[in-house]
Amino acid sequence: MLATAHDEILRSTVRLARLSFSAAAASVFLYDPERDALVFEASSGVGEDQLVGVAIPADRGIAGWVANTGEPIVIRGVSDDARFNRDFAAGTGLLPDIIMATPVEHAGEVLGVLEVLDPKLDAIGDMAAIDLLTELANQSCAALSLLIADRRMHANRTEVDGPVAQLAALLDRADPAREAAVRDLITALVKLVG
C-alpha cells in the first residue's frame, strides 16, 4: 500500500506540474545513492512512462546540475542541442525547446529533480514559473517525507520482536485489577519519550 502511495504522489506531482504550465511533459527523477544515479520515476504527457526506471549519472546534464547545486533553472533553445536531442528523443519521441527544472529537496538534502518540458511561460514569466514549480516540488517532497516517516512507524509497529509489540503484549496480559498501575506506566513513558 505504501509503495502505491509513493508512486501516486509522484504521478500526481508530474501531472500537476504538466497541467500547471500547459507543458508537453513533466517528469521526476529521484536520487539512488546505491547507484549514484538519478532514476526516472514518473512522467506525464508525451512519452509518458517510457523511460521509467532508466538511470542517468548524477553528475551529468541539466538534471545533474540541478541535483548537485540545488538551484532551479530555465533553459530556452534546447531543441538545437543535437546531443541532448539524440538521447532524449530516442526514449520519448519528444524534442523540447524549453526545459525548466527544480530540485526535490527535504531539509536541505536534494532527493531528486522535477523537470517540465516545453512549459507555456509567456503569460506567467520564467521566474514566477520557477517559483511555482519549486513549491510543487516542495509539496511533493513534504508528502514523500511524511510517507517515509509513516513507513518507519509502521515498521516499528509490525516488527514481531520490536518494542511496540512487546509493550502491547505486556499490556494485553495485565491484570485488570492493576489498571491504575498501567496508567502510571503510560504517564511515565510519556514523560520519558514524549
Binding site: E71, R76, G77, D81, D126
Partner: peptide, 11 residues
C-alpha cells in the same frame, strides 16, 4: 552552450 550554440537562461 557546449556544442557551439547558445541558450537563453536566467538566474
Amino acid at each position: 552552450w557546449p556544442g557551439g550554440g547558445s541558450k537563453i537562461v536566467s538566474g
